[in-house]
Design a binder for these strands. Structure first.
Lengths: 124, 124, 124, 124
DNA sequence: GTGGTCTAGACCACC
DNA sequence: GTGGTCTAGACCACA
């Protein structure tokens, strides 16, 4: 995995885990990779993975069974999706609209660009 | 002004200055607020404003008349617009469309949200 | 049984066993559940129960008859009660009183709360 | 400061900070010691103090002014007191009453012990 | 084997 | 000066 320079690694790891869950690669109530395993897979220090797991636990996305490992909570996918939606509507959308105004882009032009985008990124 | 937690303050200040120029609040060849004045207005350390002005100078958005102050360059609005457009098309737009897909949002719903936004942010 | 997050499970198991003895659910010289049985009943790893039994043996609360199983010692209730009393008076009581002061709780209010508690936890 | 063996150091540091606030040694909106300063004062690694400060930030007890340092929030004392009260009523009180029952201690005897305690710990 | 804690030390962005 | 991130490595409790 290649990490972006703009964001701290542990945040990118939380996003990575959430993606795996949303993509159903890691299922509800199933064990996820141990701290050490994921660390060696992603080529980072175990402490960094630990920090990501800490955050995910606080967010209720994973939980720990002592001595056994971390597991996906049953409502993890819903929570993740909800949080992303919230963030999109609250912060990304207004910023996007503001940019449209500044750049003089109307909803009509946007639609053209969107159609373009869909053609280049067809559903699998 | 309220600063976001996610970005460094000096970057937000450069954006603020650029916004003022794009909105024609600060005109070409006109003097902009001194480092000290803007610092006290925005409630930040003068060094922070200084750093923002440094960057704006490097980008050719403002220039310094010794002993007088900083001024907007004559091609500032064009430059800023160009850069914003570039960034918008290259990185923001694809990410935005990707999120629309993820959240199952169509161009129709987007139009409704946009109309809403326009009503809440009428042009002066 | 629901285990607290704040304490290790094997400690909670020793407390559980001691409670059973104090409540006369498990009598002197009687056989107590085997490691496996208690483990499956409490939904924990047998090693964890084993560790708890080890400690209880060292404390002289239970003893092992080879090939037969663990039994409550004849002086177990007295020992447990003595230890609890000691701990209660030495550490819990002062901390409790200190908290009462901090929260401005008097002996009168405490009595009300205690009556409440008794109503919700009637003796069998 | 002497740390207990039973609890992780960073938790004890959060309690230490809360105590300072409750005792009005550190006032609302005032700067608290920097990570490095407190670390050297308490003879621990800066990372350990950092972890404590992280938690306190999440709890809304302190907040960070970038490049300047951490400060006590204005509602910190109320929050801390509220949390301690909650914990006392929810977990300490029931455990305490349960012990009273097991040890055959009535409210009358408790009152005697409390009077005793008050005599030994007079208000300053 | 699992996670959790702590240290030492480096480097960085920011003010 | 401030906090924040990351690494390397040790040690421990727990299952």
């Amino acid at each position: 995995m290649n990490f972006s320079e703009n964001q701290s690694i542990y945040i990118q790891i939380t996003d990575y885990v959430k993606d795996q869950i949303l993509l159903s690669n890691w299922l509800k109530e199933e064990k996820i990779p141990s701290v050490r395993d994921l660390a060696s897979e992603l080529q980072v220090n175990p402490n960094t993975v630990m920090r990501a797991y800490d955050i995910l636990q606080q967010e209720g996305v994973i939980y720990n069974k002592r001595g056994i490992g971390n597991h996906v909570t049953s409502d993890a996918p819903a929570k993740i999706l909800e949080a992303r939606k919230e963030k999109f509507l609250q912060s990304e959308l207004p910023a996007f609209f503001k940019n449209m105004l500044l750049l003089g882009l109307g909803i009509g032009e946007l639609e053209v660009l969107y159609t373009h985008f869909l053609n280049e990124h067809p559903k699998k």
